[in-house]
């Protein structure tokens, strides 16, 4: 089993072309990054606001919890059936997949940002206010830098989930690494299925490693040492 999966992975023909591993990996990354950016655009401002003001905590917690319970495949089908008659071409399949991934990524990002800000040492916040900083100066110069480790862990966990779940875009005929899982199952090519699954896991780990490197450069060394 393992060696035949390895055969599939090491066959150059499987890597090349429009439908090859390289092209599908890039498509997969493209969907994943777009979804992460969209989710961040929604969740980061919400998290900053809630963490900074302390208002709406209950809303944040229920959104984060509720969204986590939404079944991705169900949302995908509902979104496709609702949007298919209203959209033209590729977008009719791409938008529903994106919605699913964004919904999936909002909870971890939101909780990371909100918790990061809320858990900044009150003494640091008080000191900043005592020095005469305005509300937004406190947020951007004290709270956000201090919250970065937790914000990053929220992003990383969101990205892991996105990469794993972006495989379902293949169900509605889009590309990405999910193609190997779906097509492999349909044609009973179990090497292709297992190979595709390994590639998804490898991509997730690789992207997480890259995010980890970025985190090292961005987060203040003072915070990393104490952590």
């Amino acid at each position: 089993m393992i060696s035949s999966v390895f055969d599939w992975l090491s066959t150059p023909a499987n890597w090349e072309g429009d439908r090859g591993i390289i092209s599908q990996t890039l498509t997969h990354l493209e969907y994943s990054l777009i979804a992460l950016v969209c989710a961040a655009l929604i969740a980061v401002p919400m998290g900053l606001y809630i963490g900074h003001t302390g208002r709406g905590r209950v809303v944040a917690v229920s959104i984060a919890g509720g969204f986590r319970a939404i079944p991705s495949l169900g949302v995908l089908f509902i979104a496709v059936l609702l949007l298919l008659p209203r959209l033209r071409g590729e977008l009719a399949f791409a938008l529903p997949s994106l919605i699913v991934l964004v919904i999936l990524a909002i909870p971890p990002i939101l909780s990371g940002v909100y918790a990061g800000i809320a858990e900044v040492d009150p003494a640091a916040r008080d000191a900043a206010k005592g020095m005469g900083m305005t509300g937004s100066q406190v947020l951007w110069q004290v709270e956000v830098p201090n919250a970065l480790p937790l914000m990053f862990s929220g992003m990383r966990s969101a990205m892991l989930q996105i990469i794993a779940t972006a495989t379902i875009a293949a169900v509605v005929g889009l590309g990405g690494l999910g193609r190997f899982l779906i097509d492999g199952q349909a044609t009973r090519d179990y090497d292709e299925m297992a190979g595709g699954a390994l590639l998804v896991a490898a991509l997730a780990l690789l992207v997480d490693f890259v995010f980890g490197l970025v985190q090292r450069f961005v987060v203040s060394p003072g915070l990393t040492k104490t952590a």
């Binding site: 496709v80 059936l81 009719a92």
Partner: peptide, 10 residues
């Protein structure tokens, strides 16, 4: 999905 996509022109 196949029937829907055909009806909607995808």
């Amino acid at each position: 999905l196949t029937a829907q996509s055909l009806a909607n022109g995808q």
